[in-house]
């Protein structure tokens, strides 16, 4: 089982602090939908998001938002398309669609998107 599947199965959470989210895995980010912004530019000069990888986890900083909890409400999700580090990015089957929910105490709930959630890659 890959790391992302394991995290979802074990219901492990990430974290968020103001405009920063921390995901407990490493990966290649392809697309992020936050509020009504579709972000696909993750280059160092991107004015929307900055991705920083650490050993075993990754950070995403949303430059346009000061505090995510003011933007994302209870039933809303930040949606991402990501490929786990080390997997073939060109194989569409490796593209994972995840929904991230902001919970109490900086907890970021990670779920695989189901059919109910609208998410066109």
């Amino acid at each position: 089982m890959d790391k992302i599947s394991e995290i979802i199965k074990l219901k492990k959470n990430g974290l968020f602090y103001y405009n920063r989210i921390i995901l407990p895995f490493e990966g290649y980010l392809l697309k992020v939908i936050i509020d009504d912004e579709i972000i696909t530019d993750f280059s160092t000069t991107s004015k929307y998001a900055y991705v920083k990888e650490e050993d075993g986890f990754m950070n995403i900083y949303f430059k346009e938002f000061k505090n995510l909890s003011e933007i994302i409400s209870k039933y809303e999700a930040i949606k991402i398309v990501i490929v786990e580090k080390g997997k073939d990015i060109f194989n569409m089957k490796n593209h994972r669609k995840l929904a991230l929910y902001l919970e109490e105490n900086h907890v970021l709930k990670i779920e695989a998107t189901d059919d109910d959630i609208l998410f066109i890659e």
């Binding site: 697309k31 939908i33 509020d35 009504d36 912004e37 579709i38 949606k79 609208l118 998410f119 066109i120 890659e121």
Partner: peptide, 11 residues
């Protein structure tokens, strides 16, 4: 409608 569509990933 535009906002919902963009939140779904449609540009």
């Amino acid at each position: 409608v535009k906002s919902i569509s963009e939140r779904a990933g449609i540009e």
